[in-house]
């Protein structure tokens, strides 16, 4: 089943057209890595997909349900608020700089939306939260506050927070970019473990080697368009396009 479909997405900021007609599909259980130089539009693509940014044109569909459709004038029309609220429940997002709630303890960061948004009981939320913290090897940090944690630990809390709501698709926006190099490994391992559990994920990343290891499908974006996409063996090991080759040559392989 197609969990996510983006069709003919266009997005401009003022006169600058950041995304020029991008279409993308993500199947259940698929791990898609989006790579590309900074300013290529990959973050904007992710922000449009997670409804943090409005689309100028195109369609956005989760599990066959339209979050954004094309109106008669060709412009993008978002679904009514009730429908959008439901669709927000289909995906989670892990931010580059975590965006944990500083005034909530670790466990409350993970459980608060379960109680406030999903109206689960405190006990049920706590059980889900503790389970996820255990999985993230953070059980001993349950009552700590975000400022007391390392960057890697904070990012694991934010992954637990996103997973708590049981999303169908989990997005990562450069999840290791704000971390010290020695801490990136622990986050990449968590994502690999999730991939092994068949979690559907879309990852914007600069970690080319990691993208090759974990993703089923690589999308290389430059200048607001998909330049090349396909399995990692093709896109990363044998890129056909000159721009892809130029981009990848800047990374050690």
């Amino acid at each position: 089943m197609k969990y996510l479909e983006i069709r003919n997405l266009r997005k401009s900021f003022g006169d600058l057209e950041v995304i020029k007609d991008i279409s993308l599909e993500v199947e259940e259980g698929q791990v898609v890595a989006i790579i590309g130089p900074s300013g290529s539009g990959k973050s904007t693509l992710l922000r449009c997909a997670t409804l943090l940014e409005t689309m100028d044109a195109g369609e956005l569909i989760y599990l066959g349900e339209h979050a954004v459709r094309t109106g008669p004038d060709g412009k993008a029309v978002p679904a009514p608020p009730g429908q959008l609220k439901k669709i927000r429940g289909y995906f989670g997002l892990v931010f580059q700089n975590f965006n944990l709630f500083p005034h909530f303890s670790v466990i409350r960061n993970v459980t608060d939306a379960l109680i406030t948004v999903q109206k689960k009981s405190k006990e049920e939320a706590l059980a889900i939260g503790r389970d996820l913290l255990k999985k993230m090897a953070l059980s001993d940090k349950e009552n700590a506050y975000p400022y007391q944690l390392s960057g890697g630990q904070q990012q694991r809390v934010s992954i637990a927070r996103a997973l708590a709501l049981n999303p169908k698709v989990l997005f990562f926006d450069e999840p290791t970019s704000a971390l010290d190099p020695e801490l990136t490994g622990e986050i990449l391992k968590v994502i690999k473990d999730l991939a092994a559990e068949n979690m559907t994920m879309v990852i914007v990343t600069h970690e080319i080697a990691f993208a090759r290891d974990v993703a089923d499908h690589i999308v290389f974006i430059d200048g607001g368009v998909i330049v090349e996409e396909g399995p990692p063996e093709q896109v990363i090991n044998n890129p056909r396009n000159e721009r892809t080759r130029a981009f990848l040559s800047r990374f050690e392989r």
């Binding site: 931010f95 965006n99 948004v117």
Partner: peptide
């Protein structure tokens, strides 16, 4: 307050 706080809350469905 950082805009990321609003965005995190929005994505979580608040």
């Amino acid at each position: 307050i950082d805009v990321g706080q609003y965005e995190a809350a929005q994505v979580l469905g608040y």
